[in-house]
């Protein structure tokens, strides 16, 4: 039955629901901007998980013990699963997974810039679990409370699984930093390369973030980029100290009045270059995804052809 109230009234009711902390579900009325923002955010999040499999996947075949091999495989597999949950959440908004994947492969969709950096040593695997998953957990813990039901539930499931990822990474770093001299140097070198890009994961300061105000009003985001980044720094500094790792920021100091760790300036020009496509591995990441997709096309076609031949709809 069509809703006879006008658009202005619908928007007012919608925003009241959000303010009251209600979840919006797929068939509920929502402003087109809300739908579009969510499609953009959720698909970007999904793409990030899938592309994120590649830098860590790079070390699966060289993992130095069977336990580490199994642990890394399970972690990368979880990332595939997370991408899958997120694509499904986006599909509730009326887009299909094929369309989202094609947008990624054509370079029209974004994914988290962090996955355009190379993994150069085994220590990178530990540091990624610690920093990158650590930052993702901060973000996803917030998103688990967002206003859109399917996205909130996907993030809840992701958060439960992500905890083991961060612990695994930190355990690797801890083992390295209490190991041989070469291992300690390997760990410190990886930290030096991944620290600043990890801080950039939270995005530029909100003043330069065009979408922030709307996302906050509609509880798609619940905290500012800077708040989340500060929280991440605050929890990570003591973790680094506990494993005798030095964070590569001479300006890092504890401010007793605010209770926060103050840190140095982020070079946002590096972030924008990487987003634009000029990071160290952008081309390699996209080539890997395009190759997998094109080499897999005949497989997907075969599965479809078999289903058409043998399975009648609804049986």
């Amino acid at each position: 039955m069509p809703d006879l109230i006008n658009a202005e009234e619908q928007l007012k009711r919608f925003e009241m629901r959000i303010a009251a902390g209600e979840k919006i579900e797929p068939k509920d009325w929502m402003p087109d901007r809300y739908r579009q923002q969510l499609i953009r955010m959720i698909s970007q999040h999904a793409h990030s998980e899938i592309v994120g499999m590649l830098p860590e996947g790079n070390w699966i075949t060289r993992a130095p013990t069977l336990r580490r091999k199994i642990g890394l495989l399970a972690k990368v597999q979880d990332e595939a699963g997370h991408g899958l949950y997120l694509y499904c959440a986006a599909e509730t908004l009326g887009v299909d997974r094929r369309g989202m994947i094609e947008a990624l492969l054509e370079g029209k969709a974004k994914y988290s810039h962090i996955f355009n950096y190379p993994t150069l040593t085994w220590a990178d695997i530990g540091v990624i679990g610690w920093f990158v998953d650590g930052a993702a957990i901060v973000n996803q813990t917030m998103l688990a409370k967002c206003s859109y039901g399917p996205y909130s539930r996907a993030n809840l499931r992701i958060c439960k699984e992500e905890n083991f990822h961060k612990r695994q990474g930190y355990e690797i770093v801890s083992t390295l930093s209490s190991g041989t001299l070469k291992q300690r140097e390997m760990a410190q070198d990886a930290v030096n390369r991944w620290w600043w890009p990890s801080l950039m994961m939270f995005g530029p300061p909100d003043a330069s973030s065009p979408n922030s105000a709307e996302l906050l009003r509609w509880k798609i985001k619940l905290h500012s980029n800077d708040e989340l980044r500060q929280h991440f720094v605050d929890i990570t500094v003591p973790q680094a100290a506990a494993v005798s790792i030095t964070l590569p920021d001479p300006k890092l100091r504890f401010d007793t009045s605010s209770g926060h760790w103050m840190f140095g300036e982020i070079d946002w020009s590096e972030f924008y270059e990487v987003i634009k496509g000029n990071g160290p591995c952008n081309k390699e990441r996209m080539k890997a995804r395009r190759d997998a997709d094109s080499e897999g096309a005949w497989v997907r076609d075969a599965a479809h052809a078999y289903a058409e031949k043998h399975v009648s709809a609804g049986t």
Binding site: G83, L84, E295, V299, R300, A303
Partner: peptide
């Protein structure tokens, strides 16, 4: 088989 991780023909099959 682990070499396929991240390169499978469809997401479900990667898993």
């Amino acid at each position: 088989l682990s070499e396929w991780c991240g390169h499978g023909p469809v997401l479900e099959e990667d898993i």
